[in-house]
Each structure stands twice: as structure tokens, then as C-alpha cells.
Design a protein around this nucleic acid. Structure first.
Lengths: 191, 191
DNA sequence: CAGCGTACTGCACGATCGGTCAGGACCGGC
DNA sequence: GCCGGTCCTGACCGATCGTGCAGTACGCTG
């Protein structure tokens, strides 16, 4: 799973709590105060590590965007292969690892249009939607992929809230691979 | 389509702009000032019509929750019928009519847990997820329904942002009925 | 005309927002 | 022992937050 521990100079817990807050209440709704408290720091400390709230958003989403870039490049490489189910499993793994970042991009992306990271992520997702998926008009493909991606993101965040008991990650992962395969790679409905 | 024009004493545009803001930036991120300005009123006027920001959220989501209640009751009535595809078309219509409210409930519900309307809506959605869908463990069914619902909600909000040209509602609707049918009512993946 | 209810507003409040700044605690190297 | 750098802090700024309140314009009923 490549190089865990990027550079991020020790501010990892800060990025995590920032991501949690952004995913939960959105960028505007999240306050530096709460993010700081959640990470066990003062507000000033947050602004020492990151020049602004927007810079914090950028840093928090950056790893997810970088990994997504890599993922799209790999998809381009294997192009017309039937090994797409393997790719899909990789994609689900990606969603698991970056579930909070994905939630921010998908659920709050609308309101954050204009911010560099968000636009970048949006372009990547659109690209992915265009390259993956069954034949059909590109809008149709985008729609299907949109449903699948956003649905998956929701489940990754809300699975525990909805399930009666805790569902282990492994089970959710398997079901997601199944569901997305059926969905994105195209199984026609009978009649 | 039952009684359009509920009672709401003339404050309909206010509720609409409130819904827009809540869906876009979440409850915490939305400010009464912006909601008021968007509706062409002063902040004080908003608090004249609704006792608090939370009361405004309640009023804005209430119609969607009521219609959803009705929808679930109808689903219970037809129970084991094979007319589920008809019900699904109705459900998609519902999603269209209340797309903003659905976006709030789905995307921001997590952060709003505890608010009466949200908990009510959550229970309804869970109930719907349990009653609809293919056989399988209830968690598995909930997961599939969760993916479908959240995915649909996303598409209804973001369709225009993603599509290269504007996709007419009618087309999205047809595709959604198709997609959700295949997805929620259960078509097994070959192999 | 007087009186009342409805819709709406400006102003003021305490709290919190994102952000600046001066300084304190701790570090290794000179 | 002093210095520079890293990490972190509290105090403070102007703006905006949700909310309360007094007041105003308007239309109805008597």
C-alpha cells in the first residue's frame, strides 16, 4: 500500500480531526476552534501549522487527491483489459482509506467549488467516471458512476449508524466490491 | 400529486432559500443572514416567521418527511406485490420533488442527529430500507438501499455539475428508475 | 378615527468566527 | 551561556453568528 507516513511534519492528528470536522459539518460549519480542541491544540497552533483554514482543507484533502491521481493513471494503463474487477477492488480499498476525504469531496464539493483541491478532485472523479463504466452516452455513464461513488461514500460514513449491529469493514468491503461491480461495470436488467 | 400549496403562511420562498442553503453548506454553515438575503428579507423577518434557526430547519424539512411517511405507508400496504416497480417510480418522483430536503437528510444527517425532524426522517429511511430490497440479511439490504438512495440524492443535486450539457429531468428520472430498479429490487450479478 | 393584528425592520447583546501578533518553553549547536 | 529555530500559547482584532426587543408601516374591523 505504498508509502504510508507521508512527510506531513507531525501534524497528522490535526489533519485527521480537520477531516472529521469537514466531513461532518462541512467546511463553513467546521470551526478552527473545534478542530484544534479535537486535536488537543489551541486555535493558534492550527494557524501556525497551516496559513489559513483553506490551506488546512487543502492539506487535509491532498493525500486523497494524490492517490486518486495515481489510481486514474493506472486505470488508463490497463485500459481495455477485462481486469477491471481487480481495479474495482483497488478502488474500493481507496475509498476505505480516504473515506472522510471522499465524503468531503462528494457531499460538500458543491459548496467548495473554486477551491483548488476540490476542483482538482472533481476533474479526477469526472475523468474516472468517463473512463470506467459500461457503454452508453457519457452522461449516462457519469450518472451511473455518480450514483455508485456517492452511494459508496455514504455507506462508508453511515454504515454503522444504519446497521443494527456493527458491520465489520471486511464485510462492507466485499459487499461494496460486489455492488459496484454489478453497478458500474454494467449488468443489464432483464427486460 | 396531492395537495400542492400546504398551509405555510406565505413563507414559502423563505423555506426554499433555507433549504438551498442547508443543502449547500449544511445547517451550521448556513447563516440566517444569507438565507434572509436570498429570500429578499431581513434576518429579523426570518426569526419572526420561525422561532429559531432550528425551527426553520424543521419547517423546511417537514413536507419531505410527511410525504415520506405517506410513501412508507403505501409500501406497507402493497407489501408482497410485484408492483414494486411502480412504487419505485413513485419513489423517484418523490426524490425529485424533495431533492434538496433529501440532500440535507442524507448528506448532513450525521451532524444533525438529535434534531427531531432528522431523527424522524432517519427512522423512516431505515424502515424503507428494511421493507424494500432483495432478500438477504437486513444489514446487506440496508447497505444496498443506502447506496442507491444516497447515490440518487447526489445525482439529483450534482447532475448538472457533472454532465457536459444540461441533462433534462425526464432523462435523469428514467435512468434513475432503471438504475434503482436493477439495484434495489435485486438483479444478481452473473457468476 | 381609533384600535388591533400582521409583516417586517434596525439596533443591540454576547458569543464565536478566522486571523494577527508578541512572547514563552524547549531544543540542538556554537 | 547565548542563539536560532520549532512548537505552541493567550490576548486581541474586526466581522459575523443567533437571538431579543422596540418600533413602524399597513390593512382590517369597529
Amino acid at each position: 500500500m505504498q508509502d504510508r507516513t507521508r512527510d506531513l511534519g507531525g501534524s497528522a492528528p490535526l489533519l485527521e480531526s480537520a477531516l472529521r470536522q469537514f466531513a461532518a459539518v462541512g467546511f463553513e460549519g467546521a470551526s478552527l476552534q473545534r478542530i484544534a480542541a479535537d486535536a488537543g491544540l489551541s486555535k493558534s497552533s492550527v494557524l501556525y501549522h497551516f496559513a489559513s483554514k483553506e490551506a488546512l482543507l487543502d492539506a487535509a484533502l491532498r493525500p486523497a487527491v494524490e492517490d486518486l491521481t495515481e489510481l486514474v493513471e493506472d486505470l488508463v494503463a490497463l485500459s481495455d483489459d477485462p481486469s477491471r474487477h481487480v481495479f474495482l477492488a483497488r478502488f474500493v480499498d481507496y475509498l476505505f482509506e480516504h473515506r472522510l476525504a471522499i465524503a468531503v469531496i462528494i457531499n460538500h464539493g458543491q459548496a467548495l467549488a473554486g477551491h483548488a483541491v476540490i476542483d482538482e478532485a472533481d476533474a479526477l472523479v469526472r475523468d474516472l467516471a468517463f473512463r470506467i463504466g459500461p457503454p452508453g452516452g457519457k452522461d449516462r455513464r457519469s450518472l451511473r458512476f455518480g450514483v455508485a461513488l456517492s452511494g459508496a461514500a455514504f455507506v462508508l460514513i453511515a454504515a454503522d449508524r444504519w446497521a443494527t449491529d456493527h458491520v465489520p469493514d471486511e464485510e462492507v468491503r466485499a459487499e461494496l466490491v460486489d455492488v459496484l461491480g454489478e453497478f458500474v461495470l454494467g449488468v443489464q436488467q432483464p427486460a
